[in-house]
Design a protein around this nucleic acid. Sequence first.
RNA 1: GUGGGUGUAGCUCAGGGGCAGAGCACUUGAUUGUGGUUCAAGUGGCCGGGGGUUCAAAUCCCCUCACCCACCCCA
Length: 418
Amino acid sequence: MKKKYSNVRGTIDFSPQQNFIYESLRNESIKLFGCYNYQQLILPLLEEKSLFIKGVGQTTDIVQSQMMKIEGKDIVLRPEGTAQIVRYYLQNRLDKKNSFCKFFYIGPMFRGERPQKGRLRQFNHVGAEIIGSNSFYLDAEVILLALKIVDSVGLTKKELQINSLGCEDDKKKLAKYIKERLKKRKSRLCTNCQKRIEKNPLRVIDCKRPECRKIVKSLKLNKNHLCPDCLNHFNNLLSILDNLQIDYKYNPYLVRGLDYYTNTVFEITSSQLGSQDALGAGGRYNNLFNQLGGLDIPAVGFALGVERVILALDKIEVKPSPLVFVARAGSGLEEKAFSVLTNLRNSNIVSACDFRKKSLKAQLRYGQKIGSNFVIILGEEELKEKKVILKDMERSQQETVELGQLITILKEKIKKYA
RNA sequence: GUGGGUGUAGCUCAGGGGCAGAGCACUUGAUUGUGGUUCAAGUGGCCGGGGGUUCAAAUCCCCUCACCCACCCCA
């Protein structure tokens, strides 16, 4: 019995239509990154496991259960890009060279989660990192850039949520506060949160269960946990966004699931997506370099989920260039068809011919189906006089033209068409 | 990792122990060498896989796999 092959669980094949959006997202991103003076990095899909344990955090779900391990080695398929970029920076001692850097990357990430809408085991990130400055202007730049990229492919319905966790001390203070305040009501939290309250209290305020949500809301969180410097940083960022008239929602209950975030965290969500509603997210990570290399280097960045952007875009306008189809009336005209096609293509005219043994009627039907704007019909009668039939499909008109004039006439028609 | 749902033609799905179905799509026709609309005919199935019950299973039972959605988590 023949085995039926299909794609691996949690992966998707990009159809030509999806790829069209992907390419458009990719091109627009590269253009924007260039304009903002970022440099592209292409790093391996394989990294040492411990890079992510130290970077992303031992208690996070990504590290606990979602990393895809390479058999027999302490090597994993990368689950995210930030720790890797930091590894690159440290490995190449960029702190000694030009310490301030802006990088972007586009490529696949891997997480061994159970797939659902908007959640895959292999998915693509478009991400950026700014390394070497703690300026709130750069927090703003990163947010702006993420929004612009999403905009560039025509995704206008989206929401920006933003919060500040504060520096490492502030985070500890906030965690302690949450722990103390929730201790009495611990039994009313979900079992998951009861565990988290000890290990990672910040995650509790992010829980989406209604009962936890209710309790957490009563904490009345605000900016009080922030030290003067961090408060200043956050307020300045918000006023930049205000001045740019960017819509955002301050959400004091927004936490990111990766341990490395400090200060600014943000999330861009879309209502088009279902339960995995984040198109992208990011924030500041002023402690990650310390974790991985013992250096005190501030940084900020974001990542967008390519497949989620594609998912959220229900339609995209595809405007292909005019297509010319070559049809043969009669048998034995393949060689002539091939030579006409070659000439068309050498003149950069988008053209096609199916070379199947089909009747003229069937060829025209196929030509129609693939969206041909013009059809060249090769007929023995006309070819004797070095002529061909040129048919305008939309107008249902045709004329006989000199083979020598064909390219010139077609180019003229195509120009009018566009 | 946990729950719920769904697997029948290329696609969307109906059928629910006794001949394998519809719509769309596809192929071929409807006066010599001309597309879209229309009309006609045709191709196409291990009814996800394995086992069981039965004279008989796409249908009932068990197992399994895959997909979808949700939880969780994240982009």
